[in-house]
Structures are given as structure tokens and as C-alpha cells.
Amino acid sequence: MAEIEWPWQYSFPPFFTLQPHADTRAKQIAAWKSLVLEYYRITKQAVVDVREVHTNPLFNNTNINRKLPSEAVLIILEELGKSGNASPLDKNKQRWLVYWHTLEEWGDIIYNWAQENGFVGSVCTLFELTQGEDTIEQEFHGLDTEVLIRSLKTLEAARKAELILFDENQGVKFF
């Protein structure tokens, strides 16, 4: 896991209290959003469970003994959802999928890679895409499968690919 360079806010106690002043709060949430995405990009994680956020160093800075309350975490996730960087996995909004590129962006990135490497018209397994040797240099290497499927679905909707999902075999065909 790569080392994260925490921003200055991370060691600033007020960062962990939701600010009542509107402008301040906007800045605070913006800072949180970028920090969350940055953290998930570097750690290559995708799922946030609101019930377990405090096991996550992101929301619990033990150095200054501050935790971000769950309500605030939820607000940040909803803000991320608005900008297309997160979506809830269940109705209670307890588990969230977080992605530092929006699904459309991911789709484009993958499709560009397929075009450049001559995979258009052929089938790739999802394992090949995220774990294969061809994609080690790519940003989507190691991407969460759920995020991958969702971004490929955007390609499918744009008629650039077709998902092939059997029990064991998960693949995609690019057009």
C-alpha cells in the first residue's frame, strides 16, 4: 500500500467537526472529498462502510485523537455521489462504492486503452483488465471489480462494448 501524503487539514482538529458556517463548510467538504478520493486511489479501495468508518485511518486521526462523526461521513459520501464519484450499494446508504474517476471517465480510459492496444473487436476477461500483465502500467490496474463492471456498463450503454457475464466467466467485448 502506498504511503499517503496527508494534507494539512488532516492534522487540523476542526477538520473533524462539521462546520456550521456555510462557506467554511463548503471548503471543508471539498477538502474532505478530495482527500477521500485521493486516499481511495492510493489504497486502491472502493468500498466505504459507514458503520465501520472509524477503523479507517482516513476518518480517524489517532495522532490528534479526532474522528469524523458518521453523519459527516454520510454527508461527504452524498456530496461525492452528486459529483458522480460515489454511489450507495444498499438502500440504507450504509455501504458506498467510491471511485476517483467517474464511471464514464473510467469507461473512456478503458476504451482508449483497448483501442490503442488493438483489443477492439475481441474479448477480454475482467481479470485480464485489472490483473493482467498488459495493464500493469494502466490506471485501472487493480480496480475494484464492481467499479469495473459499472464503468463497462456505461460503455455498453454507449454501444462501445458488450459485457459477457456468466457465473465464472466475466468478460467484455469491445466494438
Binding site: 494539512w8 476542526p14 473533524f16 462546520q19 458556517h21 471548503k27 479526532r66
Partner: peptide
Amino acid sequence: EKYGKACRDDSIEALKFYPNLFLEE
């Protein structure tokens, strides 16, 4: 705080106020 010159840190210790670095930075 209302004037945007302070921000709060509400912890179990106390309600502390800090310079509003969010806006200043």
C-alpha cells in the same frame, strides 16, 4: 465564526475555536 473568521472543533474535551484555515488557506 459567523463572520467566517473562526472554525470549531467540537470534541469530547470542549468546544474549541481555531482560526478559519479553511477559508484562509
